[in-house]
């Protein structure tokens, strides 16, 4: 929009300032409270701490086994992401490069699973995992493996959908050139399509990781003391009789920083991926 009038500038300034305030408020509360001594968060709320302390950041590791939860979350989210992206790449490649029977049914079915209320298949899935465990001895219920398996399917529909769009935008002339050079389908996928689709793949990986890192419902049922992830573990601070809010805020900040930093670093890939694929 060339030549922006003054009223538009002012409207923009006011709206964006108010919105920034709304967005910043909880972030400020989280950061400032995590550096407050306990009496500051136990009594009336204070905008400014009476004194700064890093004590909460030391104590959080002892109040609940935060380190263990952290490792569990890292393993679960990391493995779910790698698997989800791999499976999605194969599926999206098939849909974008081949015409075959059931192609439409596949895309529609996969997308429609997004609509299922998680609560509907929570209990059946729980029972399936328990039964698989009883029959084969493969422990899925209560194990990280079960959670990985579950989470990877959560991000799968969106990942496949977005990658189909992205792969479609890669010129087929490249595929054909590769075929002339003697590449098979898998070779073409590995050497041509995947390298050209790196932004889309990164975007999908970010999404998959975030999905797994933040999920609460299934984690609350499918984990035990050993395999508990952050999403459930963090509530350990908040459900005790005395809530150490400064520690809760410190722990929230600690578990958020890696994911927010990663997201913000990679957000341009996500936007580029959306622009090229999903929103076109």
């Amino acid at each position: 929009m060339p030549s922006i009038p003054a009223w538009f500038r002012w409207a923009r300034r006011v709206f964006l300032t108010l919105l920034a305030g709304f967005v910043l408020l909880p972030l400020y509360v989280m950061a400032s409270s995590s550096l407050k001594p306990l009496q500051d968060v136990a009594g009336q709320f204070r905008w400014l701490p009476s004194g700064l302390t890093i004590r909460p950041y030391i104590d959080i590791w002892d109040t609940v086994p935060l380190a263990r939860y952290f490792v569990n979350s890292l393993i679960v989210a990391g493995a779910a992401t790698v698997c989800s992206v791999t499976v999605a790449v194969f599926a999206a490649y098939a849909v974008s490069r081949y015409r075959f029977r059931g192609r439409r049914i596949f895309t529609v079915t996969v997308l429609s699973t997004q609509m299922f209320p998680g609560i509907l298949f929570l209990l059946p899935l729980f029972l399936i995992y328990v039964n698989i465990g009883n029959l084969t001895g493969i422990a899925l219920y209560g194990s990280r493996g079960g959670l990985i398996l579950t989470y990877l399917t959560f991000s799968l529909p969106f990942s496949i959908w977005m990658l189909i769009g992205y792969f479609e935008s890669i010129p087929r002339a490249l595929d054909e050139a590769a075929a002339v050079d003697g590449c098979g389908p898998i070779g073409t996928l590995a050497r041509i399509v995947v390298p050209a689709a790196v932004p889309g793949i990164v975007a999908v990986a970010v999404y998959a990781f975030m999905t797994a890192w933040g999920e609460v419902l299934f984690a609350s049922i499918m984990t035990n003391d050993v395999t508990r992830t952050l999403s459930v573990g963090l509530q350990g601070y908040a459900t005790q009789n005395d809530v150490y809010w400064n520690q809760v805020m410190a722990a929230s900040l600690v578990v958020s920083v890696p994911i927010v930093a990663g997201f913000l670093l990679l957000q341009r890939y996500l936007i580029a991926g959306l622009t090229a694929g999903a929103v076109k």
């Binding site: 919105l19 967005v23 909880p26 933040g214 952050l230 927010v260 997201f263």
Partner: peptide, 12 residues
């Protein structure tokens, strides 16, 4: 800044 709430884990 605007994308940060979306990136934050729900529970945090």
């Amino acid at each position: 800044l605007f994308l940060t709430p979306y990136a934050l884990p729900v529970y945090a």
